[in-house]
Write a protein that binds this DNA or RNA. Structure first.
Length: 464
RNA sequence: GGCUGGGUGGCAGAGUGGUUAUGCACCGGCCUGCAAAGCCGAGUACGUCGGUUCGAUUCCGGCCCCAGCCUCCA
């Protein structure tokens, strides 16, 4: 039985799929004004994992992940670049897709963009104004009346009064805002010079950040849906506000299960743009295979902080390499060994505990190596089982040679042909029992990142 | 100040009221011309002070420390 930790109830709960129709999942995606970094990648990988695992468990799933393509930062960046907003966002949407593809992240079923859902956004704001949940201020902004929503604070575990007692709470109201209450937040921002705008019943302007997700998620999935995900930092205020808006507009319970992934840290500090301590996916891919990055991300539980240090990806690479070494030359065919599946499933059913699940895969790998010397379970079955179980993790799906001989992201290394030539030369040296020369060639290759292994069936090689 | 979540062996990272997590690294042995990979084996843990218990890393309480949110942020 699958259990998922629900941020709303603050405990693990048995997952209940809808009585009919697919499981509906919405995840807050990327605000596109720059290249994605490892923190974004974690979110993308985690929910890709959730989607894949749900499907592997037999659920039908509709997975929606939005793209925020209008907001303060985007506008600021576009102005800074002297570039139209649409050009900027399209550029980084393309870049995001490239990075996703590289990381083996399957596209969600729907990828709605805020700027093409203005009718839905305006419709929801209209309903909120009509039923008194929101109001038009003198400055042309439309605000949501937080005090009018009794359940406000349920997700963040704070009452409105507690929020106001924060040290800097009074500073929440920016100059130019005309809120009835400091906690109120903008649904619609009146246009300012140099900003893109859309017509609305309240005058030209653009949507606030939170409303797009309420409008697009309910538009794509219905007033109520099953899972809503995003990074930990979105829990408040973004998701709290989504609940308030959506439920005030529809009168229905918005979301069943809220999932929040933990942060990536760098030397125990949050990785973020504002701290400047981030690594973009593109930079990392220059040095490491994408699967190594995925392996690293999945090595810890999705809710735990993931600490990135200099050796993190080295460790991950060595670890992943061992799996592919075990999978090398495994006979084709085979069938799924169910007792391994049970162990794996038990781990994954426990709130997607990939760390535990990967320990099962490590044991399985060990069993494969033992089976080569004749074990109780057939090699082909063990290999097939390992690959099959790793499917929802999107790991170990390539031919072993591809991974082991891949460029590893290294630039300027030896070509396959050059390596082959060196190997032939070394074979001759070995045949001549000229060990000094053979070892010299091996050392020279090693210094260029090529590892040789002499086996019964000849010498094999791989790149580090 | 309020609210979250944490403190596990050299590093990463699960888990459990009494029995080996797992991986990487390191050490010994086997294998190898020597290596590598693999196998076999060893070692190094559970922030701190109390409490409950026959027994706590695991439950309870205090304390210390860390990270995050309370403002844009995956």
């Amino acid at each position: 039985m699958l259990e998922i930790y629900n941020s709303l109830s603050r405990r693990k709960q048995a997952f209940r799929a809808p009585d009919s129709g697919p499981v509906r999942m919405y995840v807050c995606g990327i605000t596109v004004y720059d290249y994605i970094h490892l923190g974004h990648a974690r979110m993308l990988i985690v929910f890709d994992l959730v989607a894949r695992y749900l499907r592997s468990r037999g659920y039908q799933l509709t997975y929606v992940r939005n793209i925020t393509d209008v907001d303060d930062k985007i506008i600021a960046r576009a102005n800074q670049n002297g570039e139209p907003v649409e050009a900027l966002t399209q550029r980084f949407i393309d870049a995001m897709h490239e990075d996703e593809d590289a990381l083996g992240i399957a596209r969600p079923d729907l990828e709605p963009r805020a700027t093409v859902h203005m009718p839905q956004i305006l419709g929801m704001i209209g309903r909120l104004v009509e039923n008194g949940s929101a109001y038009l201020a003198g400055n042309g902004d439309v605000y949501f009346r937080v005090r009018g929503f009794a359940a406000y604070g349920q997700l963040s575990g704070r009452t409105p009064d507690e929020m106001l007692s924060a040290p800097d709470a009074a500073a929440d109201v920016d100059p130019g805002e005309e809120k009835e209450d400091p906690l109120d937040f903008a649904l619609w921002k009146a246009v300012k010079p140099g900003e893109p705008s859309w017509d609305s019943p309240w005058g030209p302007g653009r949507p606030g950040w939170h409303i797009e997700c309420s409008a697009m998620s309910t538009h794509c999935l219905g007033d109520s849906f099953d899972i809503h995900g995003g990074g930990q930092d979105l829990r408040f205020p973004h998701h709290e506000n989504e609940i308030a808006q959506s439920e005030s507009a529809t009168g229905a319970r918005f979301v069943d299960v809220w999932m929040h992934n933990g942060f990536v840290r760098v030397d125990e500090e949050k990785m973020s743009k504002s701290l400047g301590n981030f690594f973009t996916v593109r930079d990392l891919l220059q040095h490491y295979d994408a699967e190594v990055i995925r392996f690293f991300v999945l090595s810890s539980h999705y809710r735990s902080p993931l600490n990135y240090t200099d050796s993190s990806l080295e460790q991950a690479r060595n670890g992943l390499q061992a799996y592919y070494l075990a999978l090398q030359d495994i006979p084709a065919g085979g069938r799924l060994l169910e007792h391994w599946q049970e162990r794996f499933r038990a781990a994954m059913d426990d709130d997607f505990n990939t760390a535990e699940a990967m320990a099962v895969l490590a044991d399985l790998r060990h069993e494969i190596n033992r089976a080569r010397d004749g074990g109780p379970e057939p090699l082909a079955d063990l290999g097939y089982t390992l690959r099959t179980l790793a499917e929802p993790l999107a790991l170990l799906q390539r031919p072993a040679e591809d991974f082991l001989r891949g460029t590893g992201g290294g630039v300027g290394g030896l070509s396959d042909a050059e390596i082959a030539a060196q190997l032939a030369e070394r074979e001759q040296a070995r045949a001549d029992r000229d060990w000094a020369r053979a070892d010299g060639i091996r050392d020279a290759l090693a210094s260029k990142g090529v590892i040789l292994e002499d086996g019964a069936a000849g010498t094999s090689w791989r790149r580090t």
